[in-house]
Design a protein around this nucleic acid. Structure first.
Lengths: 345, 345
DNA sequence: GTGAAAGCGCTAACAA
DNA sequence: TTGTTAGCGCTTTCAC
């Protein structure tokens, strides 16, 4: 009585129809949960699928139906929590609606991003998630042309659907906190190519806050090539050895801040007595570091969820908030304190 | 002279053929880099593609060619470096060969994993990457049936292609290190369902090493539900308040170890004088913690690379090493030290 | 409620 | 080197 399919023969919908004694149209209806199929036939089809070990061919379905049930996501890199966390949330969310994620990385490069988006479009993605708001000039053109719902994350952008926070504002808040503590000499450690809008917004925010206080950010104190903790640590050494050693250091994320703190400690600087350091994101470990980190708490998971919700709603023809502004929260901890009194003189 | 395609009309290969004045077969040849096309025609086709803004339809290509140029990956979760790091490396590697990654998460559940694999198969993945070696009974059956090259990661497994390390051995080494320091009362903090072979192998490794020293692991000292740093911290409190407070605590990864250390510190235990704690993975920050962490260094990126290389080689009909055993390295730092002398009497 | 039949957009023999 | 043609496996009118 064994009905095992021969291993070499790929069973198709036709085989199922044949076995169930119905037409391919009916099989298709059952597969797609169409209401109008007589229960007895439905059962017959389901049994045939089971017995034959039928696996639907999505390429064929996509071709015929013009929907891939696939959503694309392009992030700068998977190698940091900053993106992998929201992506995890995003994926879980779209998954609940039956979508599968096609994932690509841009490596922080707009050209690569465009290429990846093009490829995803070739695969027929039904919707797309992007990070940031500064892309290749032709990227939005292509997306509009294909008529694919798309949302930007991490930055807000009045021109397009987006979910994120106001990086300028967040950096301003952080800077204000440090200014209130009496700091006058600032430094910034980030890891980013110039194309990164989130980071450049933050730098702008810091610069504006400084300007409002009659201060400026020394160019020599702006380090924008630190991606890892060790790179931040080394950057900090350079800062301390530089022409204008800061008393307040604003870092792009908590890991970089950790690296900066390590360097300071290795130079026997006391935190926060001699130097104040801030992070960004409020990773789980931030509060547990030797010097609990002052940082901006952002809801990483929420970004992914909101992005998914927007896309899913749009795909369903529902309306969803096009702009979602998340509000980062300043968390003041022990890594920041009053500026040291001028040492000598 | 504007040749902008009308936004509504999807341009197909036929349109390109028409415009270039060749057959669809020739367009297909150009698209696929077939050598035998006269340069003049090739150029004509390329120009037509450009002018029409042609985007290939991969669903159609997949259907016709029976190759999707897609590789599937299923990981327990994206939300931890442990998997997102190797995945990043994997993705980069397959990408260089023109493949796109279809990503799914199992959430540590074999049933979910099977479902996800089935879905990926529906999408026609050409190859598959899995984590671990304990899956749903029908998973390998399905893969074999579909004849899809597949590799397991993080664990080695003689039955199937795999790349990973010997978790039992690694845990044994760690345990031996602690035994040599005179520890007698051990605890283990991991976050994992029972299905997780990597972790259960490690527990086995620890148990065996203990047994060899005439010791056992108190069941009350085995905590297997700590995924986050804070959960590890709380687990540690329970351990310290438990019937058999350990002097040596083996944690599933560096983040958990960090949490455990925090709890110990909050109870005014000195590390490593009063208690020794170990991690796993050697994350970048491990050496910079207040108490630099003794841990096993594993090449997370390498796992992804090797997996990708194996799959790509297999897809090309080349042979590649079917088993790759990576060797974790014991890194001894300040979080472990001699067992405290028995306190009271 | 069901089936027949016409594609979806591409590749791959096969012929020329 | 090139074109013709027959599918790939599904969905989806449109009749019935």
């Amino acid at each position: 009585m064994s009905d095992k399919p021969s291993p070499s023969a790929r069973v198709s919908l036709d085989d199922v129809a044949l076995r169930a004694g119905v037409s391919t149209a009916t099989v298709s209806r059952v597969l797609n949960g169409s209401a109008s199929v007589r229960p007895s036939r439905r059962e017959a089809v389901e049994r045939a699928c089971e017995e034959l070990g039928y696996v639907i061919n999505r390429a064929a379905r996509t071709l015929a139906s013009r929907r891939s049930m696939t959503i694309g996501a392009v992030v700068p890199t998977l190698a940091t929590e900053t993106f992998s966390r929201p992506l995890a949330a995003f994926q879980q969310q779209i998954h609940q609606s039956g979508y599968t994620m096609l994932l690509a990385s841009s490596d922080f490069d707009p050209d690569t991003e465009l290429k990846e988006v093009n490829k995803l479009v070739e695969y027929g993605i039904d919707a797309l998630m992007l990070v940031g708001n500064s892309h290749h000039p032709r990227l939005w053109e292509r997306i509009a042309q294909q008529n694919i719902p798309c949302i930007q994350t991490f930055s807000v952008d009045a021109r397009y659907p987006s979910v994120g926070y106001d990086n300028e504002l967040a950096a301003g808040e952080l800077t204000a906190h440090l200014l209130a503590l009496g700091h006058k000499v600032f430094a910034v450690i980030v890891g980013t190519p110039p194309s990164n809008d989130r980071v450049s917004d933050r730098i702008t925010g810091t610069r504006q806050a400084l300007a409002a206080a009659g201060l400026t950010l020394d160019e020599a104190n702006l380090i924008n090539s630190a991606f890892t903790m060790n790179e931040a640590r080394e950057a900090m050494f350079r800062l301390l050895d530089g022409p204008n050693p800061p008393t307040a250091v604003i870092c792009g994320n908590d890991l970089l801040a950790f690296g900066a703190m390590r360097a300071a400690s290795e130079r026997y600087l006391r935190i926060p007595n001699d130097i104040s350091i801030t992070g960004f994101n409020d990773y789980e470990y931030a509060e547990h570091l030797e010097h609990p980190l002052t940082t901006m708490r952002v809801e990483l998971d929420r970004i992914g969820e909101v992005a998914a919700d927007y896309l899913l709603a749009t795909l369903n023809g529902e309306t969803a908030p096009v702009q979602t502004l998340l509000k980062p929260e300043l968390i003041v901890r022990g890594s920041t304190g009053s500026a040291p009194r001028a040492a000598k003189g």
